[in-house]
Computed example of a mutant assay.
Amino acid sequence: MTTHYDAIIDKCRDLPPVRTAIVHPVKPNVMEAVADAVAENLIVPILIGPQARILAAAREAGVDISGWNLMNAEHSHEAAAKAASLAAAGQADAIMKGSLHSDELLGAIVKSNSGLRTERRISHAFLMSIPSYPKPFIITDAAINIDPDLAVKADITQNAVNLWHVVFGDQALPKVAVLAAVETVNPKMQATLDAAALCKMSDRGQITGAQVDGPLAFDNAISPAAVKEKGIISLVAGDADILLVPEIESGNMLAKQLIFLGGADAAGIVLGARVPIMLTSRADGLRTRRLSCALAVLLAEARKVGRLK
């Protein structure tokens, strides 16, 4: 687990730090995370929010922000809007959530006139590593899209595939397991119908850069023993790199079970916008926030050199 984590951090060592708009950083734990990312040379922070509260949070955290850019904003909604404007104008290459609700931040980004939308739906991905699985994997979407239809699931899949290639390279195609409760198509279970359609969309080039299979129950997606026992013939089953969940409840519960009961390392990142967005949780520690910053650095560099649009 530590090896996977360190390898991703190491990929950023020779890359420049990313200009990052920190939205409403008015709590000490946020300031500590920002200071950690600066010390790791991952970001150059632009603090956006009520100046007095930011200064108070920095004092409480024992963080010297005298050399950082600070942009005053009256409240969190204004801070989110200013961050989106900076990113749209090319003055910030990433955005980090501070002490505000996720929907406040994303509301400023998903507006049609924000300048940050792309042709694809915005989605969230957890990059995870856990001792009981031999390689890192992605869970998507467990944080933004509540009940995605087929078209949205296709975008969520493509976003995650693009992230996988940015982090791990193009030497092999990531294996996408489209999760459901069962591994057979059942007309009464929409998740299985969507899974079958996504596989055909992949066959027809509507989803690129991956091997896609489903429906697959969770055990069939990650356990070679379960695959053998059920006689499933698949290039993906038992060896998934990306787990596409049916909807937000199952995805969120799966991710948090792995983090809090399984001891998984996890980093969250928002994909599909013109800049990466670090949508960290209040419960996230420095380790998780640092890895989220590393993903933002890799994504920002990929966009700069034309690997992402």
Rank of each mutant, 00 (worst) to 15 (best):
D93E: 15
E104H: 15
A94Y: 00
P134G: 07
L86N: 14
E78L: 01
E74I: 00
D93M: 11
L70T: 12
A56H: 10
R13S: 11
M128R: 12
A37E: 00
A52K: 15
D36G: 02
K97T: 05
G67S: 14
P136C: 05
F126A: 04
P28N: 04
A80K: 02
D141E: 08
K82C: 02
I65H: 00
A35E: 11
I122C: 04
A56S: 12
A33S: 12
Y133G: 06
R120P: 06
R13W: 00
R13I: 01
A57L: 12
L42P: 07
H101G: 14
I22K: 09
A57I: 05
P131V: 11
A81Y: 09
I65S: 03
Y133V: 10
A37H: 01
A142E: 06
A83S: 13
P16D: 13
V38L: 12
L55W: 02
L70R: 03
E60F: 03
C12R: 08
L55S: 15
N72K: 11
V23F: 14
I138R: 10
I48A: 04
D93C: 01
M31K: 12
Q51L: 06
L127T: 04
M31P: 08
R120D: 06
T140Y: 04
V63N: 10
L70F: 02
V34M: 03
E119V: 10
D93W: 00
A52V: 07
N72V: 02
V26A: 04
I109T: 09
C12Q: 12
L15T: 11
A21C: 13
G107V: 04
E119D: 15
I138M: 06
V23L: 07
R121Q: 10
V63F: 08
L70C: 10
P134I: 00
E32W: 06
L47K: 13
Q91A: 11
P17V: 03
E119P: 06
A87N: 02
V23A: 08
G115E: 08
